[in-house]
Design a protein around this nucleic acid. Structure first.
Length: 553
RNA sequence: GCGCCCGUAGCUCAACUGGACAGAGCAUCGGACUUCGGAUCCGAGGGUUGGGGGUUCGAAUCCCUCCGGGCGCGCCA
């Protein structure tokens, strides 16, 4: 449709130019769906853009352009107030689109814009120091949905989880387990300062005791057993939580491997060779001035103790990602990592890498309110609400929908009381209900002996204006999905679904729109045909969100 | 102090990336069909898009400034 109208417009502008009514023909052709459907299916603003240069009223320009277009019969052109050229497609066009969608099934929702291109999505990447919190939930669901969007639209997707297991926090984790282990044996012990206080640390200690008895009592606090046991157990827990949300990963990449096989050192050497490393106070710093970083601050690469900070492996990790040759690389992380990411990208660029494939999706923090008061969360102090607890309370569908129901750079306020108490009124149920209602309609149609209409013979011309509008809306999901993928904005999907479900509920509630009427067989079949496409649209959209599309509720 | 993000109806958030009268849900108040699911629908009230200035045919959207909130500016991640 767009292609057709574009060339039509191009011809109109060209014609007006040839005949001397326009001084230029140089203008970008932008076609977009107007907010108000009364203005047509697509609108163009070229006359408004040209008005100044031409020194003419936009309406005059619009008329001139229209004179030189000769539209096929299925295209209706109108000119509107400030100077828009509006296009409306004839019903036959939409009937054909409905037939096409019905033939495709829910797959019509997914435009194949990826066409074999590869994309790597790095998300969650929480260090295994404790259970996933509500804060991690936003990252997990956002990243997973971005991955789903890509794989549905034809990209080859690699879902990747990166974690730091070589740093100070891991050391603290091991020491914390050591302390709890000694306590389990009734020996005096103290958690290290800044140690992890969560109950799960005791659980790790208990299982160590069950496995090894007292034989570890003389091991050093930094002994590998303690750390490894903690990481294993915590990771199992993280994986389980992800599973409950329908989230999985293809690859887990860890910092320690990058350090051990020399890639971190190689990155450091490369930076040094470019003169981007400063030595000061026995430590190595990334030259903030040379890289023109925020505030021009230097950032530590290697501590005076000889240990790299998290930053250096992260640079090495991104070099590795770029070398793997993905067409697109998406990094999903919270606002607290924004400066860090800037440093990594700047370093990569300085090393001569093309960083254009890398795109960051930075989300703002989740605040949790309970009883009207904000809950402050900290993993170390073990004052958090776990993602598991949240799933227990409201279920995976609500959790996922809730996290996706906001633009990523908007703060997300999760009111626990509300989520619990109002679960039945949650928007997700509104959308799911529309799907279940449609399923129910098909069950009733079966009983009435109305089967699936044949696309060739169904009389779609019987559909009313309102039904045609509903059809356009349902078919519009394809474009919404495309925009969501291109802009990396999954939130567009739930908002669209809510609108579509609302349109359907409103339509359905009017007695005149009764879908099944044995007295009017042809009309019923046409309406069922439309209903089928509606259901495909909702089901296809929900699947993208990882939310179930129930037949009954 | 400096940098990034945000500020839209009482609350939580949209607004197709500069377009046409700024829209939903929740909450409040008042209503609805004797047949396909009332987890639904209809109606009402509610706005100087934080304030001010600028850019242009046109601004919630871009620029400047002030106010307010979040995050960062660590040899933590």
């Amino acid at each position: 449709m767009k292609e057709l109208l574009e060339s039509l417009l191009r011809r109109g502008i060209e014609g007006a130019y040839q005949s001397g009514k326009l001084k230029t023909k140089d203008v970008a052709i932008v076609l977009e769906a107007p907010r108000d459907p009364r203005h047509g299916d697509l609108a163009n603003n070229a006359p408004l853009v040209l008005a100044k240069a031409e020194g003419k009223a936009p309406i005059t320009i619009a008329e001139a352009i229209r004179e030189h277009m000769d539209p096929p019969p299925e295209v209706e052109i109108t000119i509107a107030r400030p100077g828009f050229i509006n296009f409306r497609m004839a019903p036959e066009y939409w009937h054909a689109e409905l037939r096409r969608a019905a033939a495709c099934g829910p797959a019509f929702v997914y435009p194949q814009i990826g066409a074999g291109r590869t994309v790597q999505v790095e998300f969650l990447s929480a260090n295994p120091t404790g259970p996933l919190t509500v804060g991690h939930g936003r990252n997990a669901v956002l990243g997973d949905t971005i991955a789903r969007l890509h794989s549905s639209t034809g990209f080859r997707v690699t879902r990747e989880y990166y974690f730091n297991d070589g740093g100070r926090q891991m050391k603290l984790l091991g020491q914390s387990v050591h302390a709890r282990y000694l306590e389990e044996l009734g020996r005096p012990a103290e958690l290290p300062e800044d140690g992890y206080q969560g109950e799960y640390i005791r659980e790790v200690a208990r299982s160590l005791r069950a496995r090894y008895g007292e034989t570890l009592v003389n091991e050093a606090p930094d002994a590998e057993v303690f750390r490894v046991a903690a990481v294993e157990e915590i990771f199992a827990d993280i994986r389980h939580t992800c599973e409950r949300l329908g989230i999985s990963f293809d690859i887990y990449t860890n910092e320690l491997d990058l350090i051990r096989d020399g890639r971190v050192q190689a990155a450091l050497d490369a930076l040094r060779a470019r003169g981007l490393v400063i030595e000061r106070d026995g430590a190595l710093w990334l030259n903030g001035e040379a890289l023109n970083l925020v505030n021009k601050k230097d950032q530590v690469l290697v501590r005076s103790t000889g240990e790299p900070t998290y930053r250096t492996p992260d640079i090495a990790y991104h070099i590795d990602k770029l070398r793997r040759g993905f067409d697109e690389i998406v990094d999903v992380f919270g606002a607290d990592h924004i400066a860090e990411h800037e440093g990594v990208i700047a370093a990569l660029r300085a090393l001569g890498y093309d960083t254009r494939p890398i795109r960051a999706v930075i989300y703002q923090f989740v605040t949790l309110t309970r009883g009207g008061a904000k809950v402050k969360m900290s993993t170390r102090r073990a004052t958090y609400v776990t993602l598991d607890e949240l799933i227990d309370e409201v279920g995976s569908d609500v959790v996922r929908f809730f996290f996706l129901f906001r633009k990523h750079d908007s703060h997300l306020d999760f009111d626990l009381d509300l989520a619990k108490r109002q679960a039945p009124e949650n928007p997700v149920f509104y959308v799911q209900y529309a799907h279940a209602r449609l399923a129910s309609v098909f069950r009733e149609a079966d009983k009435a002996g109305l089967g699936v209409a044949d696309a060739g013979t169904v009389k779609l011309e019987l559909l009313s204006k309102e039904e045609l509008a509903l059809a356009k809306k349902a078919l519009g999901i394809t474009e919404v999905v495309e925009e969501a993928v291109v802009a990396l904005e999954p939130h567009r999907i739930p908002f669209y679904l809510l609108e579509l479900a609302g349109d359907f509920h409103r339509y359905y509630n009017k007695p005149a729109n009764r879908i099944i009427d044995p007295q009017q067989r042809d009309l019923s079949l046409a309406r069922l045909f439309l209903a089928r496409v509606l259901q495909y649209s909702i089901a296809g959209g929900l699947q993208l969100l990882g939310v179930t599309a129930p037949e009954r509720m």
